[in-house]
Simulated assay, not measured.
Amino acid sequence: MRIVLGVEYDGSRFYGWQRQQTVISVQQVVEESLGKIANHPVKVTCAGRTDAGVHATAQVVHFDTDSVRHRSAWTIGINGFLPESVSVRWFKETSDDFHARFSATARRYRYIIHNSTLRSGILARGVTTFFAPLDHELMHEAAQYLVGRQDFSAFRAVNCQANTPIRDLSHIRISRMGDYVILDVRANAFLHHMVRNIVGSLLLIGSGEKPINWIKTLLTDKDRTKAGATAKPNGLYLVDVTYPEKFDLPRKPLGPLFLAD
Rank of each mutant, 00 (worst) to 15 (best):
I3A: 07
I3Y: 00
L5I: 05
S12R: 01
R13E: 06
Y15R: 11
G16Y: 03
Q21L: 11
E31T: 10
E32Q: 14
S33K: 02
I37Y: 01
H40L: 12
C46S: 15
T50K: 14
D51Y: 04
V54K: 02
H55C: 06
H55G: 04
V60T: 09
D66Y: 11
V68T: 15
R69S: 02
I76S: 14
I78E: 01
I78P: 00
F81A: 08
P83H: 07
E84D: 14
V86F: 01
V86N: 00
V88M: 07
V88Y: 00
R89K: 15
K92R: 15
E93H: 12
S95E: 09
D96M: 10
D97K: 07
F98I: 06
A100C: 06
R101I: 02
R101S: 09
A104Y: 05
Y111T: 00
H114E: 04
H114A: 02
N115T: 10
T117K: 15
G121Q: 11
I122D: 03
A124I: 14
A124T: 14
A124W: 09
R125W: 02
T129V: 03
P133V: 11
H136C: 07
E137W: 13
E141K: 11
E141S: 12
Q144E: 05
Q150L: 07
F152P: 03
S153W: 09
A154K: 00
V158F: 15
Q161S: 11
N163K: 14
N163I: 15
N163G: 15
N163F: 09
P165R: 09
I166S: 08
R167T: 08
D168R: 14
L169H: 08
I172F: 03
S175C: 14
R176E: 05
D179E: 15
D179V: 10
Y180I: 12
Y180G: 02
L183D: 10
F190I: 12
H193R: 09
H193V: 06
H193E: 09
S201D: 05
S201P: 03
L202V: 10
G206Y: 05
E209T: 08
I212A: 05
I215P: 03
L218P: 01
L219Y: 03
T220C: 13
D221A: 15
R224P: 08
G235T: 10
L236A: 03
D240S: 13
T242C: 06
D248F: 15
L249C: 10
P253I: 12
L257H: 02
F258Y: 09
L259M: 09
L259T: 12
A260C: 06
A260N: 15
